[in-house]
Amino acid sequence: MNRAALFDVDGTLADTNHLHVVCWWEALRQAGHDVAMHDIHRAIGLPGEDLLAHLLGDDRDTSEDDGLSAAHTTLYGTYFDRLPPLASAAGLLRELDRRGWRVVLVTSARGDELDALRRAVDADDAITATASSDDVDKGKPAPDPVRHALDLADAPARGAVLVGDTVWDMQAGSRADVACVGLLCGGIPRRDLEGAGARAVYRHPADLLAHLDTSPFAGHTA
């Protein structure tokens, strides 16, 4: 049975959540929307349209959505050449690959943004595939991206672990019947990650790597 190690990227493997917060805040500000950065932070990890619905409401003027997303993309793009990976992110992916796990990225990023994130993490040799928001009709917290990632890894849910930093990651993994591991490096509190389905919570990739043998990854055998 194949084993799938599924990873969110923003806030999980790359220290980018707060860059997204600032870029969404500026994009919204330019369009006349006063949204607190704290609220934006809690929405990071949702696909763009869902993030805007979460922040502005379903009754918003949706004709603004494309412009707001484009403004965020333009602002965020100024960081593409210096996105910071989290310590030991690449080492964690490589160690799981060495142990026989099929590593698949599960992310709302796409196109040039996804390319920039992969360059930052710098572990393509350990990555089997990537499931982006372009591949499914519904993004996290729907289970669709996780199920698509399982298909790419040719692995069942019972042989998979999802690592993420947001409640949306934990909810998506739980709805797909995958074991979930939360990381605190994205800025979301432990209790929120556990409440959304995390079986274990670690500080960051280096912490998970150091405790791999006692983590949910140790509960799955080949």
Rank of each mutant, 00 (worst) to 15 (best):
A196K: 07
D207K: 05
V136T: 06
A198Q: 05
R147D: 11
L184E: 08
D134S: 12
Q171T: 14
D151L: 02
T130A: 15
G182Q: 07
A123T: 13
K138Q: 15
Q171A: 10
L193Q: 04
A198K: 04
D213E: 15
G186V: 06
A172F: 04
G187W: 03
D115Q: 13
H148L: 07
W168S: 08
P205K: 08
C180H: 10
A200C: 05
V181H: 01
A116I: 12
A179Y: 01
D207M: 00
D115Y: 09
A149Q: 01
G173Q: 07
L183H: 04
L184A: 06
D115S: 14
V121S: 09
V167F: 06
R199D: 08
L212W: 01
G187L: 08
A198S: 13
G182P: 06
V181G: 03
R175F: 05
R158E: 15
A196G: 07
A153E: 00
A179M: 12
L114H: 14
D124Q: 09
E113T: 14
R118M: 15
G173M: 05
D177Y: 04
M170S: 10
L117R: 12
A196F: 09
T166N: 11
D165Y: 05
R203P: 03
A123W: 08
R199I: 06
E113W: 05
A142W: 11
M170H: 09
G186F: 07
R147N: 15
G139A: 08
D151Q: 10
V161G: 03
H204I: 06
D192A: 13
G187R: 10
D169I: 05
A179Q: 14
S133Q: 08
V178I: 11
D151H: 06
D154F: 02
L152I: 05
H148S: 02
R147L: 14
A206Q: 11
T128K: 01
A172I: 12
V163N: 11
I188C: 10
R119P: 07
D165I: 09
D135M: 13
A129M: 01
A157Y: 11
E113A: 15
K138T: 14
A210F: 01
A155V: 01
G139K: 00
L184S: 09
G187Y: 02
E194G: 07
P141G: 11
L208T: 05
A153N: 00
V181Y: 01
A196P: 07
A210Q: 03
P205A: 06
A126M: 05
L209H: 01
D122R: 15
A200W: 04
G139D: 09
T130G: 04
D135H: 14
L183W: 02
P141Y: 13
E113K: 14
T214C: 04
G195T: 04
V161D: 00
S174P: 06
D151K: 10
T166H: 01
V136I: 09
V178K: 04
P143W: 00
G187K: 12
L193G: 01
S133M: 10
T166S: 15
L193E: 01
A172H: 12
D115G: 09
A196W: 00
D213M: 02
A149P: 00
Y202Q: 06
P141M: 14
T128E: 09
D165A: 13
V201W: 02
G197I: 08
T130C: 14
D137L: 13
D144M: 04
A157M: 11
R190I: 11
Q171M: 14
L152P: 08
A116L: 12
A149Y: 02
G139W: 02
T130M: 07
H211G: 10
V181L: 03
